[in-house]
């Protein structure tokens, strides 16, 4: 954390994604109360916390699916919460994977993956197709390239969704509880893909309930509670020896549920 927390430009490398004092409310319900977080290149940050703690909202603000009510989000030092910027241009540099996969049901697996590279990034059909097939091969789904999403299992669909997000070569990959809608036996195959993507050096921010996975793969674990970032540090410390009482309480409940 130390190397990415501080200065914008200078000795330490600038963070890829930086959240500064972000506030977000839906009506009277204040979901984020001034969150600060910086994610350096090749870092994997796991956001943990109970339901309604603001994990998903933070990711939705970072991916410009929501406007912030105060504070800033910076991507490579550029203030992307400035209403003057072209939001579409910013979104091109991010990959987002949703809890419910959100594959396009009317397009084949291959077309789902090649859609953004060809339509948004103007790559040639052949080139996009080749790369998509290579990516699908990496996750062991080459034989499903021409299938439609509803013929795939949840785990397979989610793996395709990850590949779809990766196909645009994003600067940062945002994963919003991507295993929460999956059978326990399918969770493993999706996490294996995330692990592989992480070892390849992708910068990742993930909201997750998989504490074991966070401990193994994340460099930093951030605990959100009631819209406040209570604790942030290496997984061994936050998950093993938390400072805050609320974190301990949360982890105790997770352990009771058999999830750690």
């Amino acid at each position: 954390m130390s190397e990415v927390a501080s200065s914008p430009v200078g000795a330490a490398p600038a963070p890829v994604l930086e959240v500064r004092g972000v506030v977000k409310a839906f009506g009277d319900n204040v979901v984020l109360r001034g969150v600060d977080l910086a994610i350096g290149e090749h870092q994997v940050v796991a956001l943990i916390g109970g339901s309604g703690s603001g994990k998903s909202t933070l990711l939705r603000c970072a991916s410009l699916l929501e406007t912030v009510d105060d504070g800033q989000v910076l991507l490579d030092g550029e203030d992307i919460t400035d209403p003057r910027i072209d939001a579409d241009r910013v979104r091109r540099r991010m990959g987002v994977v949703f809890q419910a996969y959100n594959l396009f049901p009317h397009l084949s697996v291959l077309d789902n993956v090649t859609l953004a590279p060809t339509v948004v990034h103007g790559r040639s059909k052949g080139e996009a197709r080749e790369e998509a097939l290579a990516l699908l091969a990496r996750i062991g789904l080459s034989d499903k390239a021409d299938e439609f999403p509803d013929r795939l299992s949840g785990g397979q669909q989610q793996r395709v969704a990850i590949v779809r997000a990766l196909a645009v070569h994003p600067r940062v990959l945002l994963l919003d509880e991507i295993t929460s809608a999956l059978d326990p036996e399918l969770v493993g195959e999706v996490l294996a893909v995330v692990r592989e993507v992480a070892t390849q050096g992708m910068t990742i921010v993930m909201a997750t309930h998989e504490m074991g996975f966070a401990r193994q793969v994340a460099d930093t674990v951030a605990f959100l509670d009631g819209g406040v970032l209570l604790e942030c540090g290496p997984p061994a410390q936050v998950l093993g020896d938390p400072v805050e009482a609320r974190t301990r309480q949360f982890l105790a409940r997770v352990i009771d549920a058999g999830r750690l």
């Binding site: 009510d69 105060d70 209403p83």
Partner: peptide, 21 residues
């Protein structure tokens, strides 16, 4: 949309964004 009520006044930055919008 009045988070300011719970969290104090919005920052200069947020005010300028609102003005621009």
């Amino acid at each position: 949309m009045t988070p300011g009520v719970a969290l104090g006044a919005p920052s200069e930055l947020e005010l300028s964004r609102r003005a621009w919008r």
